[in-house]
Simulated assay, not measured.
Amino acid sequence: MPRGSLVHATACGLGPARILARHLAALLLGASASSLAAACAIPADRDRAEDVDRDAAIASRARRATQGAELYGRYCALCHGRDARGYAADHAPSLVSETFLATATNAFLARSVREGRPGTAMGAYGRAHGGPLGNDEVDAIIDFLRWPGPSWAAMPDAPVVGDPERGEVVYNEMCQPCHGTKASRGQAVHLANPGLLRAATDAFLREAIVHGRPGTPMMPFAGRLDDRDIDNVVALLRSWASASAPPAWPAEIPQDMPLVIHPEGPTPRFTLRMDRFVSAAQVKEALEAKSRIVILDARTPAEWLNLRIPGSVPAPYHDFSRLDGLENDGTWVVAYCACPHHASGIVVDELRRRGFSRTAVLDEGILRWKQLGYPVEERAPVEESR
């Protein structure tokens, strides 16, 4: 088996993508742990004691996978897709590509979920970082992604040795068109992202280049680049990590935040695209005119803590409790996210379901808003407490 290829540790011999798709659908529709265990039933001719032990182990894993599937459906499917194949929103990567699961350790996955990817739509979901998930819940999501395999293959701990300057030449030709530059992301995963570079080892980065991500646009570069060129690219990526700071430690979110900005102001006149999207320019003008408006941040609270539109309040797509305090009095309610339309669209759909007619999604989201130079409140990263 080639280094970094999938370890086929499945219980019933099906490929991992088919296994995941089947069980994802079953889990999200409320299948029980026992039904999942039955899906990978052990042949009756095996030793009975071994069967009992293995059945118990499968049932235990199935229960954890069931919990993880419920959490995945609530928090992750929005961007990574219901089948976890990715690219449902904002180019979120596949979480079930064979080479990814074979080389991503549980520690890598857990840190990625807890700390997120700063500057992207992937927020910090760990409770210690202002998100909604405790460590056990993060672990359950990982159990689900790995159900009923695969395991990951051990990789070298030693750093890759290469020439970053030569790696930059190769990167600009072969990688930059999809992954963007150090300063700005492209259509694929931003490899200069500080969260990614904190979590990823050199071996993980190298394996991704060598074997690619089957089922995604990321092709394998084995045979296209020689080993030295690959090492040079990894050395370049690692050099980008030196200036990356850890994520900001969250402060308390005020519980008595006013919902309405400029309560005595005039009502803005918005022209919506497709009866749904309001341009950033119109919202900026409304704020400058001190218009009466509500702005909801549909991302996780952790993201609102670190970057937000002034006057906005957190109203995460996975928790509608903040909406209960809104009065349906004709005030315009604008929701934004970073996806740039998915999470905010969920909040707006819920508002419209509740009878709020003057609602809109901020077109292109907060990352575009910031890129345009419009006002934001942003906290610089600080050293994380341990």
Rank of each mutant, 00 (worst) to 15 (best):
G180L: 03
K182W: 08
T267E: 15
S279G: 11
S184V: 11
R213F: 10
G15W: 02
M122C: 09
M174F: 11
I230Q: 02
Q67T: 13
A335G: 07
C175T: 11
A62M: 07
D229S: 15
A192N: 06
A335N: 04
E383K: 15
A65M: 07
R238M: 04
L272T: 10
L71R: 03
F204Q: 13
A335Q: 03
L307K: 03
I309S: 01
T359V: 15
G195V: 07
Y336K: 05
R353I: 00
T66K: 09
G86E: 01
G123P: 10
A56R: 14
S184D: 13
V361H: 03
A65H: 04
L20M: 12
P217H: 12
T10L: 03
R18N: 10
R206W: 10
C339K: 02
W240N: 10
V7W: 00
H91Y: 13
Y72M: 01
P194C: 10
A343D: 05
H91A: 14
R3Q: 14
A183K: 09
R368H: 14
V210F: 03
T120F: 07
Q187I: 15
A39P: 00
A33I: 07
S312F: 04
A158Y: 01
E165S: 14
A77T: 14
A49E: 14
A69H: 03
A9L: 09
R379N: 05
V160R: 09
C175I: 08
D90L: 02
V7E: 06
H190Q: 13
G131V: 12
D297F: 07
R111N: 10
